[in-house]
Computed example of a mutant assay.
Amino acid sequence: MSYDPPRPAGRLLLTPDDEEAPARARRLRRLGLGDQPEPDLDAFAGQLAEVTGAPYAMVNFPDRERQFYAGLRTPPGGREARGGKPEVGRRLAREYGWCPYVVARRKALVLEDVRDYPRFAGNPLVDEYGIRSYLGAPLIDASGMVLGTVCVADLAPRPWGKAGLETIKTTAAELAERLERRETGGFPP
């Protein structure tokens, strides 16, 4: 599968096409994932937030139209985002955020300050929610399919560094293995 960089569309950039979305949706249905909040994945996101010190942590299962956070950790207190929008919820359009790029690229993405990257700086999460840094990795199953992503985000620039990259990649690999065990009734471990 090739990766085509996003195409400019005025100020915003179009998210990459997701050719695997139909096959991913079928796989996620077999695993019982992708359309309901998962308490175990919420707990996983909470642990990831603690390990990284990030206020946001997500386990994301995107499809062609939207992203769904089956695991979600947001800052306590119900803070409203910029422009009076409610805090990030479980469902977002595909053009919000950077997880669709992680899925298309099939590798981790480190953005210490998203405003330093013109191709990512115009994302709606920057302007509408104030997200300034992102760290995400793909959830790749044993067959090589990208099931989704594991990611964290912060309202301030973050020097994630090599340690952050290794943490997110290791965490994604461990969770992908755990998710596959759902087929045999072995999730959570």
Rank of each mutant, 00 (worst) to 15 (best):
D4H: 07
D4W: 01
P5S: 02
P5E: 08
P6K: 02
R7A: 10
P8F: 09
A9H: 07
L12C: 10
L14G: 07
T15I: 05
D17G: 04
D18E: 12
E19S: 00
A21W: 10
A21H: 09
P22Y: 13
R24Y: 11
A25V: 14
R26A: 14
L31Y: 03
D35N: 13
P39G: 13
D40L: 11
L41E: 07
G46A: 04
Q47T: 01
A49L: 02
G53C: 10
A54Y: 11
Y56H: 14
A57S: 00
M58V: 07
F61E: 15
P62E: 15
E65D: 15
E65W: 06
F68A: 14
A70P: 05
T74I: 12
E80W: 13
R82K: 12
G84E: 05
E87R: 09
V88I: 11
V88Y: 01
G89Y: 03
R90T: 09
L92V: 13
R94P: 03
E95F: 14
W98P: 07
C99W: 13
Y101C: 10
V102W: 13
R106K: 08
K107L: 09
A108T: 01
A108V: 01
L109V: 10
D113N: 04
V114S: 00
D116P: 00
Y117Q: 15
P118S: 04
A121G: 03
G122N: 12
P124C: 08
L125Y: 13
D127I: 00
D127A: 13
Y129F: 10
Y129I: 00
G136T: 02
D141H: 07
S143Q: 10
G144S: 02
L147D: 08
C151I: 06
C151A: 10
V152E: 12
W160P: 07
G161L: 06
G161V: 08
G164R: 12
E166L: 01
K169Y: 00
K169A: 03
T170S: 14
T170M: 10
L179I: 03
R182G: 10
E183K: 06
E183P: 04
P189K: 00
